[in-house]
Design a protein around this nucleic acid. Structure first.
Lengths: 208, 208
DNA sequence: TAAAAATGTAAAAAGTAGTAACGATTACTA
DNA sequence: TAGTAATCGTTACTACTTTTTACATTTTTA
């Protein structure tokens, strides 16, 4: 069903299309042409048409695109209509903030559990999701089959946990650690977020 | 002093080189060849030599690279040896976690202030940095001249704050909001971190 | 009914990134 | 101390990716 061989550049633009279409909808608009959308988003009209054309024919000649319909299609392409179970590993400052801050439901996931090695955290609830001890990870995963994990633990701990999770069937990671998951496990999907690297890159660009 | 026209691909690899060299140093090693490093990092030796060659000649034929020396050079290239003042805007769940979680000093920045519109937060300290009311932003910036801002506020509030900050001399942003800073302000440097988009991209890759 | 508007798509162009190759230099070894 | 092995810096090449252009086709609008 999903078209193959779509480039990352295209895929990475999809969430932005989705967000902009949401805004247009909020403004009460019902239709938009690729040219109008391109002006809003600072892209070219042909890029928009070509991006969308990777997945289907969502517009109509002479008319343009129906905003609500197009947003729905992109949502489906992204899989937002069939949320997948996810767990969060490491409920320190970062993990806790992520759990509080991100609305997983609207991003294609359903957060079903959080895990930490620290006994004092166990039992606490964050957004109605309980924090469990890391020693119960195996059992929990065999019962609930999470498909994705958000990794908020240090590099050293990550390798072992990753091996474990992948054996338990986890297929994707939102990775905040410096462990290069994809190198050891090319079969899983990984999105890396490295604050530190981003800051250093910014530092470089601001130097001189 | 800084070479111009270095591609983003190269710049984005620098923090990773820096991290790996730090690990090698910890292991007590003193020298490494591009081939050995390439095996560790899963790159080609050629690419490493070419990347480094953008900035100078840090190795020696027949010998390889001195690890400590090379890490120092990359640190200097990234600007880590001359930290720049930064402020953080928006001390909600995310902002507070970022302030707790990130070691700014080792990433080229010095966090000198945090700002929020919520009165109840004002006066609190996070890592010895006080939270100030957003209404004092102008005065604070004129006195302290921060060069970078970490933006942890919603899109709607971001546009106005950005305009203000740029007028006050801020040159770079670590942007967690969905406001496209660079479109309105091409003269400033921006590193975007969009959790939501990353999650949706992951959702796409895990669908089917 | 005819002009205007807009899409879908193929083909061309532009741009970027990565690899290979090799001379030059240094280290190592017998 | 002389020869061999190792390794860098650098150029040139190759491959890939991304974007743009162009146009036939379809629909809307007046």
């Amino acid at each position: 069903m999903k078209p193959t061989g779509i480039s990352n550049s295209v895929i990475n633009r999809l969430p932005r299309y989705y967000r902009f279409l949401g805004e247009l909808k909020k403004e009460g608009l019902t239709r938009i042409s690729s040219r109008e959308l391109s002006e809003r988003m600072h892209l070219t009209a042909s890029q928009i048409r070509q991006d969308l054309n990777c997945f289907g024919e969502f517009g109509q000649q002479g008319y343009g695109y129906n905003i609500e319909l197009l947003q729905g299609e992109i949502g489906r392409i992204l899989g937002l209509d069939r949320p997948q179970n996810a767990i969060l590993i490491g409920v320190g400052n970062l993990g806790k903030a992520i759990a509080h801050y991100i609305n997983f439901e609207s991003k294609g996931f359903h957060l079903i559990g959080m895990f930490d090695a620290k006994e004092s955290l166990v039992g606490q609830m964050v957004r109605n999701v309980p924090i469990r001890h890391i020693s119960t990870l195996d059992e929990f995963c065999r019962e609930n089959m999470p498909r994705a994990a958000i990794l908020c633990i240090p590099k050293d701990a990550s390798k072992e946990i990753c091996d474990q999770l992948i054996k338990l069937g986890v297929k994707g990671f939102l990775n905040f650690s410096h462990y290069d998951i994809a190198l050891d496990h090319p079969q899983v999907e990984v999105e890396n977020i490295h604050f530190g690297d981003s800051l250093m890159t910014l530092s470089y660009k601001l130097s001189n």
